[in-house]
């Protein structure tokens, strides 16, 4: 994937032929982080801690439902992907890219949690037939995330 054009309100990426399908597959895994993972406090020493945690849980559930809807609309928008001889092109606004980073990191962190939150460098010890799909999701979402971050940096230069 390569950023080929930047205008004020739009970023255009050239994708490899298989990359479009890979991106759609990865995004289709959203959401992956278990909801119980989001805690307002570690110590729980907040006023109305339970009520505040409940509010956070509700807000998170609403946000995830909205993200799923937006994701569906994002992927089915006819102007999103255009086919060219050199492969599909992906077009989006900077704010959509920012939002997409959130979605991808949910998939990445969620996959890592499903793998048992391994320490850095210990991941490969857990790789086997059963865990391979989670590794794939973690690595693939990370790859897209890095390409998109690079694009944002180029835009800022």
């Amino acid at each position: 994937m390569k950023l080929i054009r930047v205008t004020k309100g739009n970023l255009l990426f050239q994708l490899g032929k298989r990359e479009k399908n890979l991106l759609i597959q990865v995004l289709g895994l959203y959401p992956r982080i278990p909801p119980s993972n989001f805690r307002l406090s570690k110590t729980g020493q907040l006023p109305d801690a339970e009520a505040n945690q409940r509010l956070l849980d509700e807000s998170l559930a609403e946000q995830r439902a909205a993200n799923r809807k937006t994701l569906q609309a994002f992927l089915t928008d006819a102007r999103r992907f255009t086919d060219t001889e050199s492969g599909p092109r992906l077009s989006m606004s900077p704010s959509e890219l920012e939002w997409l980073l959130q979605i991808l990191n949910d998939v990445r962190v969620g996959s890592w949690i499903i793998l048992g939150s391994p320490e850095q460098g210990m991941e490969l010890k857990l790789l086997n037939e059963k865990t391979a799909p989670d590794f794939w999701a973690m690595e693939m979402s990370g790859q897209f995330q890095m390409r998109f971050l690079e694009a944002l940096e180029k835009r800022e230069v």
């Binding site: 989001f38 406090s41 570690k42 110590t43 990191n105 962190v109």
Partner: peptide
Amino acid sequence: QKYSLHATMER
């Protein structure tokens, strides 16, 4: 947390 960072608030 929207960006899936592990963030909390503590007194």
